[in-house]
């Protein structure tokens, strides 16, 4: 018991090199991001404008919140949650129906978050009780979920002039209003994860399952908690999505999936679990969200965007794999 407490309260003994390595990720991301901004700015002076900042902040918001959920799943050893699109669209639909019923914004938000958490619990139940790998389970539930959604609705939209509609179009301190909750959530999660008992447990389960189990951490309970929390973030992202997307169909969330996974990996949150700093998500998601705007300024079609995104993901995963290989001799 005392050993258990000692481990849980003691600061993790991290070698200096690894700790520097963590900040190295941040510096590298910042450098690449600045390089992209400077290159685009030199090519087209008008890139440096309020419009660009708005577009980037706007793109960052939804992807950022979803990336928190994805990062939680990854850091706890759940690998990837491929069911985020179905979960988000389900929660968005709930948000739309609630705001159509004239509910106040807070009820809409709570409803969407609860929907996301139920979706997460549904995934976790299959993963934990059938002991199946999360990648396949979420692949299948996404498949099933989207098919059911297509049977339920074709097109949905929040009513004009509802609270959530105005929230999606409001701005605060020169940036879209939806940007600030994302910033706050990333900062809070990034602060709490290495500093609270539950955060360290989640990371420990991802790092070494057997060791975490031997220490008395319930893998099942942790898995449930992680997937429900991740679902909660998906639900909140659904509010931001419903508020800003205009009319959406069940397939509208699919395009974001890759940016989210790329953002998590670029941020150094290892898909192998147990490692990562959530604050880095601001840099990685910021960088990835600048790419579409930059490409427009370079005069490239939106089709080329996927080429860049795909290649960046391959490079990021290769770096992640190289690091993991060096870390475990």
């Amino acid at each position: 018991m005392s050993l258990n407490q000692a481990i849980e309260t003691a600061p993790p003994a991290v070698p200096l090199k690894v700790r520097f390595g963590g900040w190295g990720t941040g510096l590298m991301l910042l450098a690449v991001w600045l390089l992209l901004i400077v290159a685009t700015g030199l090519y087209r002076q008008d890139f440096f404008s309020q419009q660009t900042v708005l577009a980037v902040a706007f793109t960052m918001s939804i992807v950022g919140v979803l990336a928190i959920g994805q990062g939680l799943v990854a850091i706890s050893g759940g690998f990837i949650d491929l069911s985020q699109p179905a979960g988000m669209i389900t929660a968005s639909l709930v948000a739309v129906r609630l705001s159509e019923a004239g509910m106040p914004l807070i009820v809409v938000i709570i409803g969407a978050i609860l929907t996301g958490m139920v979706w997460g619990a549904f995934n976790a139940a299959i993963i934990v009780f059938a002991k199946l790998n999360p990648v396949i389970v979420t692949l299948a539930t996404n498949f099933i979920g989207l098919a059911v959604l297509f049977l339920v609705f074709q097109l949905a939209e929040v009513p004009l002039n509802s609270d959530i509609y105005h929230f999606g179009r409001a701005s605060f301190l020169g940036l879209p209003a939806i940007f600030w909750p994302m910033l706050g959530l990333v900062l809070v999660v990034g602060f709490l994860l290495p500093r609270t008992k539950y955060g360290r447990r989640a990371t420990a389960v991802g790092g070494n399952r057997a060791a975490a189990k031997a220490r008395g951490i319930s893998l099942k309970a942790t898995r449930f908690a992680i997937f429900m929390a991740a679902g909660g973030f998906v639900g909140f992202a659904a509010v931001l999505f419903a508020a800003t997307a205009g009319p959406f169909n069940p397939g509208s969330g699919n395009a974001m999936q890759l940016n989210i996974i790329a953002g998590v990996i670029l941020a150094g949150i290892s898909l192998a679990g147990g490692r990562g700093n959530f604050w880095m998500l601001l840099l990685s998601v910021g960088f990835l969200s600048t790419i579409p705007t930059s490409l427009v300024f370079f005069g490239l079609s939106s089709d080329t965007q996927s080429i860049f995104q795909g290649l960046i993901l391959i490079i990021a995963v290769a770096i992640d794999g190289y690091r993991a290989r060096k870390g475990t001799p």
Binding site: L258, I307, V317
Partner: peptide
């Protein structure tokens, strides 16, 4: 040593 699922997901999009 990249994770095959993630790396080929990138190739899928590219």
């Amino acid at each position: 040593g990249a994770e095959p699922i993630a790396a080929t997901l990138g190739m899928l999009v590219a």
